[in-house]
């Protein structure tokens, strides 16, 4: 099978140095000019990005597409529900608890959690289990940086992520669709992989609520539902954690949920996908969503049909 190599950062994608050096000026300007400081939708603030990592030369989806077509069942099961209802969620102040098997458990204000690290733009393919995909310019930090700071002990073999539980602002949580709060998990090596990030923005600005503000996971070689949104807790555990969708339907959703064209346990055929906003579902799905070169070694010797 042909596995596409992820191209390196293209020079055209990297912010010009002169522009970069003038970034403070730009922000200052943005602050004075009402037009620039009021983004078209939502109340997003610009982020300072130190580094750009582009893993694909495919066309990036528009802001409009990324923010209006979402699976975020906490706000309802229709794709347009998150854009419609997520605005009512208060994301400030926001605390993230890091605990479990680690030497330095702590409760962080989300700003403090991010502050020690440089923000990176990561242009990733995003593949939903529903057989559609997009290309998204995330802004975030490597998950490994945050995890290392907590100093996980040798007992920590898995990491569990939990989404906020707040039915008063998340109307979808009033229905027992899933076992709220939403939890997901990664094996320790997966969580420490450099491609796994905690995202705080898209398109150079802070995330909108429908995309999982203020902080969410992005694991580009797995189906989208693995990438927990609006995270309030990161816990080091010593066994495979329960995950929301496999609790709901274990035969449809496995723990690993790596993108795999040859395994379709879910009712959808995973061999092909529809790159939005395209009409035809004729794009061949790539194993590990095209990130096989970087991640396949973690699964060497594992039967991917069994461990779906």
């Amino acid at each position: 099978m042909l596995i596409r190599n992820a191209p390196d950062v293209r020079s055209s994608e990297v912010t010009d140095e002169r522009q970069y050096l003038r970034r403070r000026e730009f922000i200052r300007l943005a602050a004075v000019s009402p037009a620039a400081s009021t983004p078209a939708s939502g109340d997003q603030s610009p982020l300072q990005i130190a580094k750009h990592v582009v893993t694909t030369d495919e066309k990036v989806n528009t802001f409009e597409q990324i923010t209006n077509y979402n699976n975020f069942y906490e706000f309802g099961s229709d794709k347009s529900d998150p854009a419609r209802y997520a605005g009512q969620l208060h994301t400030s102040p926001w605390t993230v608890k890091i605990d479990g098997h680690c030497a330095r458990p702590a409760d962080y204000h989300v700003e403090d959690l991010i502050k020690p690290f440089e923000l990176e733009e990561r242009i990733y393919r995003h593949r939903c289990v529903e057989a559609w995909s997009m290309v998204i310019p995330w802004v975030g930090i490597p998950l490994a940086s945050v995890l290392r700071r907590a100093e996980p002990t040798s007992k920590a073999t898995f990491v569990e992520f939990t989404t906020l539980l707040r039915p008063s602002e998340m109307p979808g949580q009033r229905d027992p669709i899933l076992n709220w709060p939403y939890t997901e998990g990664l094996r320790m090596d997966e969580a420490m992989h450099p491609l796994a990030i905690l995202a705080v923005g898209i398109y150079g600005k802070t995330l909108l609520n429908q995309n999982g503000a203020p902080i969410r996971l992005v694991v580009p070689w797995k189906y989208g539902f693995k990438s927990t949104k609006s995270i309030v807790r990161i816990r080091f555990v010593d066994r495979m954690p329960h995950t929301a969708w496999s609790d709901q339907n274990p035969s449809w959703y496995g723990f690993y949920s790596n993108v795999n064209p040859d395994v379709s346990p879910v009712r959808w055929d995973q061999s092909r996908e529809r790159r939005l906003p395209g009409l035809f579902a004729t794009r061949k799905t790539l194993i590990f969503n095209g990130y096989g070169d970087q991640v396949a070694s973690m699964y060497a010797g594992m039967d991917l049909r069994k461990n779906y």
């Binding site: 597409q65 794709k79 559609w132 997009m134 906003p277 035809f280």
Partner: peptide, 14 residues
């Protein structure tokens, strides 16, 4: 009408 005026959303086929 929606198809021609781009009102079918990000996933028009769906």
């Amino acid at each position: 009408w929606a198809a021609f005026t781009d009102h079918l959303g990000a996933n028009p086929a769906e």
